[in-house]
Simulated scan of single mutants.
Amino acid sequence: MALPLYLVGLSHKTAPLEVRERAALDPLVALPAALRRLGLGVVLSTCNRTEVYGVGSPEKAKALLLARGVSPHHLYVKEGVEALRHLYRVAAGLDSLVVGEAQILGQVREALFLARKHNATESLLEKAFQSAIALGKRARSETGIGMGAVSVAYAALDLALAVYGDLSGLAVAVLGAGEMAELFLTHLKAHGVGRILVVNRTEEKARALAERFGGEAYGLPALPQVLRQADLVVASAAAPRYLVGPEDLPKRAKPLFLIDIALPRNIDPRVGSLPHAYLYNLDDLKRVVDRNLKAREGEIPKVEALIEKAIGDYLEWYAGHRVREAIRALEAWAKAQVAQGDLGKDPVELHKEAGRLAHPLILSLKRRALSRLAGPPCPGECALLKLRRV
C-alpha cells in the first residue's frame, strides 16, 4: 500500500533560467493544455520552478516536460512520501531561492485552484495540497522562517520604518525608475507615504513609474529642488558618477535620511559627514539582509519538525482513506453485535456501545494499513477478512 503520489519537476537548483523559461506553463493556455494531457494532476509553475504532482505513474509528466525542450538531467522525480515531503518543503519556503519567502505559498494555493477549475484533482492530491497550504501557514506563524527583510529593497523600507516609525505624511524621493525603484515603491505604497517624488534622467520613464504609484515625476535637472522637499531619499539610478554631493544639500531645519542602493553609488560618501544628513549604503543594507537570512536558516529545524508531523498526519489520513470500506463494515458488524444483546435497549445507548466495540478494531485496522505504507501492496484488507470468518 505504498503512497502513490509522484512529483516530476525542475527548479533553480537543477536548471538555468533559459531552461526554466522553456518549461514555464502560462495559466491561460499552456497549463490547461497540460492538465488535459495529464488527466489528473496539479502543476506548480513559477519563475523558479515547474513541478507536476500526480497519482500513479510519473511517465506522462516526464514526457510533458521533455516535450518542452527540457533535458532529462534537469529533472527530478520523487515518489511516495518523498514527493509529499518535497511539496511541504516548497509550501514552507525551504526550497525557495530565498529561504522563507512568502510568495510561494500563494502560488501553491493558486496551483490547486487551477487544477480544481479544470477538474484535474482527486482526493489524494486535494488532501496533499490542502495540508501543504496549512503547513505553510503554520511555518510562518509558529516559527521565524519568514521574519526580517531579505531583499535590499525591503531592507531599505525596514530602515526607513526604523528611523521614522510612521511614513505617512513624509515626502520620499526615489532616484531612478528601474526595477529596484519599482520594488521599493511597491513596498512603500503599502505604508501610506505622504508624497512620492520620482527623479530620473529620462523624465518619461519617471512619469510612467510615478503614475503607477500616485507620485510626481521630475527630470534629473530638478534634483536639487526635490532634495529640498524630501524627508527620505532612496537612490537606485544607473549613473556613471555621483548624482548627489555635499554641495547639493543645503543646511536644513530637519535631518535628511539617504539610502543609496545603487551600484555604482549615486551619493557621494562625503554626504554622510554632513551634520544634517544620515547616509546608508548597499553594504549597510546587505549586512541587515545577511543577518536576517542567517536568522531564518536557524529556524529551518523547527519547520522541518512541523513537516514531519504533517507527513505523519497525512499518512494516518491515507491509511484511513484506504480502509474506509473495511471501517464501515466493522461499524456495521459492531452495531449488529450489540443489537443481538438487548433488542429493547435505547438506540442512543446501542450506538454508543457499538462505537466502543468498534473503536479498538478500527484503530488496529488503521495501524496495520499505516505500517504497510512503506511495504508492498496488500491484496485486500486482512483484518476485515479475518473478521468475516468469525
Rank of each mutant, 00 (worst) to 15 (best):
R324G: 03
A339M: 06
F213L: 01
G320M: 06
L185R: 06
R287I: 09
T121M: 11
I145D: 02
R116G: 06
Y318P: 07
L232G: 05
F257A: 11
L35C: 06
A162C: 10
V90Q: 02
T50P: 13
I261P: 01
S11C: 11
A177I: 10
P255H: 08
L87E: 08
L25F: 08
L125G: 02
E18H: 13
G215F: 04
S236R: 01
Y154R: 15
A336W: 05
E308W: 02
T202D: 13
A63W: 05
R109T: 10
V348Q: 12
T143I: 05
R228Q: 14
P377S: 06
A30W: 00
D284I: 04
I104R: 07
R324L: 09
A383P: 05
G80Q: 09
T50V: 12
A237T: 03
K309S: 10
R322K: 14
P4V: 10
Q103P: 10
R356T: 09
L385M: 05
H321W: 15
P379T: 08
V19I: 15
A319D: 14
G9F: 04
A102Q: 15
R322P: 08
R265M: 11
K13L: 04
E179A: 13
G56M: 03
A155M: 11
N292K: 06
I145H: 01
L7E: 15
G375Q: 14
L188T: 07
R85S: 15
R89F: 10
A354R: 10
C47P: 00
L44P: 00
F184W: 11
D248M: 09
V42W: 04
A295N: 03
L285F: 02
R287S: 14
K286S: 01
I362H: 08
A128T: 06
K127I: 12
L75E: 09
A67H: 09
L135Q: 12
C382L: 14
K345P: 00
E110N: 12
R68Q: 15
H73R: 09
L161D: 01
P255D: 15
A237Q: 00
A155T: 03
A155S: 14
G178K: 06
M180D: 08
L5W: 01
L370P: 03
T143P: 10
V81P: 13
A128L: 13
